[in-house]
Design a protein around this nucleic acid. Structure first.
Lengths: 163, 163
DNA sequence: TTTGCAAATGTTATAATGTTGCAAATTTTC
DNA sequence: GAAAATTTGCAACATTATAACATTTGCAAA
């Protein structure tokens, strides 16, 4: 299996979500973190979407669930999930995606299609290395690396080659 | 002169702002863009700060100027300045910095000190190349590359080495 | 088993950031 | 100088995020 994620290749979405949840449970158990029902539900929603989901999108679905949640509930769940590397925040979209390399406490690189909205998370060692070297050259100590690339995914490029 | 910007090395700040404004005027003239008083003032404020400045920070200073501006005034000016490569938006901070490589329509890489708040803009060809290759490998067509690295700058590292 | 504490959640309000839409003024072009 | 296009003013509103404080829950020590 490749390190790359979902949008481009077809896959069994339910199974993929179930797998992500199972991984999350394992990770939390191992690290003595409580994946409470709300947190798990938020993670599930984010995975089900597969496109970046805003905090208020999550909130809206929780409301449909009958869960009478307020913004802090969602933001707290998201903070927790980020802390344990289960979701990533896409700063350029103010939105969240499920992490496809959960439990590694890494910084991914995101390919964001401006047409279909899908996001692909990559681990690119060459990029990480180049970034780290560039920072070192300035005596800067990196802690959190955000790389977000907006553009066109292969599918959308094929559909609209002349954009 | 190095390609790197301001925070780390001492410099004559007034001269540096004046230079940025002069460059901006030249770039706009050359491209038939109108660097109106409001736009120029916003650019000046952003340069004077040298730390990322939020739209509402700009708005507050304009208010002190006696300029009775509303948010759209500032956002429009910022859009214009971004469009002509005169400022960059730092997505992870919701804030703006003066571009130190104005007029190139490039995507910089930003080193953001979480302690002092200073931002250093770099042009790192190796990083750009690695990113571009990683995207190509996924058949993704990049259009806008955002690289923001939070961490500790050399000065703050020296002051608090054990964070 | 209860008591005590820390973690998690609920609740209300509010702050911070960003946009839409339309009218008025200004600048450019013809 | 009139028409067209760009820029600005302005009011309202939309979206995203946090503060502050009360309450509940899970878990462990007495």
């Amino acid at each position: 299996m490749s390190t790359s994620a979902l949008p481009y290749r077809p896959h069994n979405h339910d199974a993929c979500v179930a797998q992500a949840l199972a991984d999350a449970r394992a990770i939390c158990q191992q690290r003595n973190a409580r994946l409470t029902p709300t947190r798990e539900r938020v993670l599930e929603l984010i995975w089900q979407s597969h496109k970046p989901l805003g905090a208020y999108d999550v909130l809206a679905v929780l409301a449909e669930d009958g869960h009478n949640a307020a913004p802090p509930t969602v933001y707290r769940a998201l903070d927790f999930l980020q802390q344990y590397g289960l979701v990533h925040r896409i700063a350029s979209l103010n939105a969240f995606v499920g992490c496809t390399h959960a439990g590694k406490h890494h910084n991914g690189m995101f390919l964001i299609c401006r047409s279909c909205g899908n996001v692909l998370e990559l681990t690119a060692p060459d990029v990480a290395k180049a970034v780290s070297q560039a920072a070192s050259a300035e005596a800067f100590q990196p802690e959190d690396v955000m790389i977000e690339i907006a553009g066109l995914c292969p599918a959308c490029r094929a559909n609209a080659p002349h954009d």
